[in-house]
Amino acid sequence: MQDMENLSDVSHLVNEIKHKKLYNSLDIALKTEELLEKLISHDQWKSARELMKLVKSRIKFIRKDLPTETTATSIMRHILKIIREEYESAAKKKGEGQSLHQLVTANSSDILDYSENLGSLRSSILDHLGEYKVEIESSSDNIAAQASEHIHTDEMIMTVGKSNTVEKFLKTAAKDRNFKVVVVEGAPFYYGHSMAASLAKSNIQTIVIPDSAVFAMMSRVNKVIISTHTVLANGGLRAASGIHSVALAAKQFSVPVVVLSHMYKFTPLYVVSNNHEAFNICASPADVIPPSAGKILNDIDVYNPIFDYVPPELVTLFISHQGGNAPSYVYRLLSELYHQDDYDV
């Protein structure tokens, strides 16, 4: 019963995500961080292990209810790593520094049974969390600051759908450079429309094209800059539907594909199939063919997938707040973000 009560905060989070009150990845990230902050500061936990158990149970809850929601689970995993780090550094204060023997024989699980460092552990974790929060909030700006290095004058940039990160990126670049943007409208959700309108307001020359014109336009495009929902462990993407075709066309014309991603979008999961339930969600077919179509709807199947898998070979560069990385480097980034044991929670 205690577990039930404790998990009510995660239930709330899951509910809000389901009800689309939390839609942006940034909002979800901040909310998750808040949730865990509350958990760490108010909850009664005695040792780091207990705390980690609480966090892990929450990760499991979210994975069960929303298998495609990776931002929340990534943040929780990172916080697990923070906890481990803080614990280890607090534990090392007791020890005399790292001798080779300790390094070789020490196993983190041995240390985690300790429950002595209560006071300092909590505060140090909270401090670190505060820094992490700042990092999350400023991630978008940091990415945008790199814009001028990647966009040159008189370039034609292609982007798909709507992303706050990409918008900021392009607007920052537009301050010093003069370039054109081609926005793919992204049917059936048409997020590209609002993106184009917003870019045009900032005096960037914008062209809106339908999804079918991607291959035709690609020969004149200099770069493709997109954002993604998730970055998978192999460097592949789970991105909005239609981006796979864009990436393929870009490869055909040797156009570099630059993916802007925050660190909390990296997940240690792999994916095998595009249609798997844990990977893709199908939304209502009414967006594709409206119910007024009448009788034919009785006999046809209509699919409206939300996500697409893009293999790592098609991605040229990942830009995060720390700088640019190749897809082959993603595994290293993952090991910096999450602890090995937490990959499979």
Binding site: S292, K295, N298
Partner: peptide, 10 residues
């Protein structure tokens, strides 16, 4: 009310 073409099963 919901839009529903004639002949639609719903």
């Amino acid at each position: 009310l919901q839009e529903s073409g004639v002949g639609h099963r719903g």
